[in-house]
Amino acid sequence: MAKSENFIATSDRFYSALLLLYPRRFRTRFGREMSQVFRDSTELQLERGATRDLLAFWLHTLGDTAMSVPREWRREPRFLDSELDFTGIMDLCIVSFVVGANLLGWGWMGARLALNLTLPDLMQYSMTVAIILMGIVTVALAALIGILSASLVSRSSRPQRHRISA
């Protein structure tokens, strides 16, 4: 009995993690009901006791999630503001630029100070590889931080409308 309860609890947690893939609006509205339906279905499969059925149910749930998540994301723009949020885009560009420039500058300075390397030493290993790596890391980090910051700023400034009441 405890074993099956543990299994149900683990399944619940796993399915709750899967629910995070859905858009927030959809998750807020239907997340609890979906979890409940999933839990009921898991209990039913456990009562039947066939491992094969349980596995088939899980595979079906994964397939269902894989199919429905993109569908819900495709529908999502209908619920956002009709006008493009240029504030968010500007935030993204500015933050990316500032963070990128800082990472580049301070990273360079840090490497020189911490390793006590002079400019020729730093580049003696492989100029090309160093530049490529530095570029990749800088751009990726700057983009990530920029997107996160812009997303936070635009979300907090966007009026809460077109939400189906929970």
């Binding site: 859905y22 959809f26 509205r29 239907f30 009901e33 979906m34 339906v37 999933f38 279905s41 079906h60 749930t61 397939g63 269902d64 999630t65 199919m67 429905s68 998540v69 569908r71 819900e72 189906i164």
Partner: peptide, 10 residues
């Protein structure tokens, strides 16, 4: 599945 069901219900 729950995703298809509640997508359609929505």
């Amino acid at each position: 599945g729950p995703g298809t069901l509640y997508g359609a219900i929505g």
